[in-house]
């Protein structure tokens, strides 16, 4: 009897913890949705902010975030994927590769403000890029690279070596084997990792705060050397203003749009993963 009560107690404890997590998520998301949904309208999504963020919309912040994500992707994906290919296919045992692995693992734990400072010191000031979209994009690319590399490596290493041998035994080169087999078969995994890391980058504030984002700007960024607006920073700036009550609708609206964007990206990642898990089950 006692044993069963104990058993029951633990079950309730575990379930309680799980409930706390679910509840927290529900409250946060529910709160944002409930308070933000009223603000969302076509105007809100397509207009520039007016009268100190009490009217108009967040169009330039959405566009800025999208520009930023596109650039981050263009920079981080090729570098990340090729590094992963190098580590796992070419130079697995070399000292350099080992060192790289350690570096990648440690970089993943570096706080984002440190990346921001690096971007500011190196890109904005030392390289003289100034406060710009490109400085922010490169900074964020640094931030997501470890994630992209780790996800790509895992996906690449999940491709069975019997398939590499099959291809090589037909007299094809290592690169042909990578290009026609290893990369295509690991692409879904890589893609999933890329999207998840981008969704992480989409919400980052500290790195862009120090390298290129601005609160107001009357036009969209003209080129990669221009400053830009972005949703997470706009949220941060408005929420920390002394008159923050006045822009509350705006804040919740921005938060909701950002949330929806991140959730959508995660959803796409999940769909890709499930679809291809079926196709490539070794």
């Amino acid at each position: 009897m006692r044993r069963r009560t104990k058993e029951r107690l633990f079950f309730l404890l575990f379930r309680g913890c799980a409930l706390v997590v679910a509840l927290a998520l529900l409250i946060i998301v529910g709160n944002i949705v409930l308070l933000g949904i009223g603000t969302i309208s076509w105007e809100f999504l397509t207009q520039f902010p007016k009268r100190n963020f009490t009217d108009g919309g967040i169009f330039p912040a959405i566009v800025g975030t999208l520009y930023l994500m596109t650039l981050v992707m263009l920079i981080a994906v090729p570098i990340g994927v090729f590094t992963a290919v190098y580590i796992s296919e070419y130079q697995g045992k070399s000292r350099f590769a080992n060192w790289l692995r350690v570096a990648v693992n440690n970089l993943a734990g570096v706080p984002s403000i440190v990346y921001g400072l690096l971007g500011l010191g190196m890109l904005v000031l030392f390289f003289g890029w100034g406060f710009s979209l490109i400085a922010s994009a490169v900074t964020l690319a640094f931030l997501v690279l470890p994630l992209v590399i780790t996800a790509s490596r895992e996906a690449i290493q999940a491709v069975p070596s019997s398939l590499r041998e099959a291809s090589l035994a037909l007299g094809t080169t290592k690169w042909q084997t990578i290009r026609h087999h290893v990369l295509p078969y690991s692409l879904p995994g890589i893609l999933t990792g890329v999207i998840l890391s981008l969704s992480r980058a989409a919400g980052e504030t500290a790195p862009i705060l120090l390298t290129g984002v601005v609160l107001t700007k009357s036009i969209l960024p003209q080129d990669i050397w221009d400053t830009f607006m972005a949703m997470p920073f706009q949220l941060y700036a408005l929420a920390t203003q002394t008159v923050f009550e006045k822009t509350q609708d705006f804040q919740y609206g921005t938060a909701l749009v950002l949330l929806v964007m991140v959730v959508l990206m995660n959803l796409v990642a999940i769909i890709i993963r499930n679809k291809y898990r079926e196709k490539y089950k070794w």
């Binding site: 019997s162 398939l163 291809s167």
Partner: peptide
């Protein structure tokens, strides 16, 4: 690469490409 072109190999476990 030329060597392997000239000498085919079939493995223990069937390993067709997906």
């Amino acid at each position: 690469v030329e060597v392997r072109k000239n000498i085919g190999m079939v493995f223990q476990k069937p390993n067709p490409f997906p």
